[in-house]
Nucleic acid binder design. Structure first.
Ligand SMILES: [Mn+2]
Ligand SMILES: [Mn+2]
Ligand SMILES: [Zn+2]
Ligand SMILES: [Zn+2]
Lengths: 126, 126
DNA sequence: TTTATAATGCGACCTTGTTGCGATAATATT
DNA sequence: AATATTATCGCAACAAGGTCGCATTATAAA
């Protein structure tokens, strides 16, 4: 199952990269020139996640947001992120606050996935 | 707009209280004796949230979980919680880890809502 | 007991995301 | 360059989770 370079994958990745933020499906669809099918966008994004190029966060609005991985050298290890995400209630921007957060869990608890979101007003909107 | 004491509100609150955890809509519906309509359950839960008796978290599965508030003296102030929630990937339990977490945000950012969820395996399932 | 209206049940609806399948196009093979 | 292979795409249908409108019910005040 070897990945192919397609128009869709290139364009979606470019949108994510130039944005620099975490984007939801509809944000991506807006910022894209050609119109790519909804299902395709989701499939491309999920493939990116599997390949460790992108990570996904569930916002406090229940939506999925996707952001390019940094300091997350490919698929060589477990693809986990423990940084906070900030979602602006005014402009909608979702950003990765690239400072890792150490969370102490009670005895016997094993963390697998971190989904940390704070919403409020960003520097531009406060 | 004064609240009324109904069969539904009493029973739903009792389920939340005796569980001690954060419950999703379907968990509540299972643990309830009589069958209360889906819409009613959501309306009751949202009313509880408005009244500061319960708080809501969006899980990393995208679902809403509701838990009784502790140390959250009613509606006298902004209803905010900054504790971590743990969701077990095996047994499905979602619990509030009642230790407040101070998260430093960049200059100019204002936090309104904390939605912090870690999923993994709980003490019973690890 | 009567009255006002908050809360309920039901159905319709919405949004977000996934899946099946036949068609298309990227890559490998000849 | 032509062909074969199959990953990816587009479309439509579906599913889950949650909300809303409206007529009906039931709580609590008068
Ligand atoms: Mn991130
Ligand atoms: Mn909680
Ligand atoms: Zn903003
Ligand atoms: Zn467990």
């Amino acid at each position: 199952m070897k990945r192919r370079n397609t128009h869709s994958t290139a364009e979606i990745f470019e949108v994510l990269k130039s944005s620099g933020n975490a984007l939801s499906h509809d944000m991506i669809q807006e910022n894209i020139g050609s119109d790519i099918d909804r299902a395709t966008i989701y499939r491309v994004l999920n493939r990116f996640c599997e390949d460790g190029k992108v990570h996904k966060v569930i916002g406090d609005d229940g939506k999925q947001y996707f952001a390019i991985c940094h300091n997350c050298s490919g698929k060589k290890q477990v693809h986990s992120h423990n940084h906070i995400h900030f979602r602006c209630l005014h402009c909608g921007k979702v950003e990765c606050l690239e400072r890792d957060l150490a969370v102490p869990l009670p005895e016997g608890y094993v963390a697998k996935v971190h989904n940390l979101v704070i919403s409020g007003f960003c520097n531009n909107c406060s």
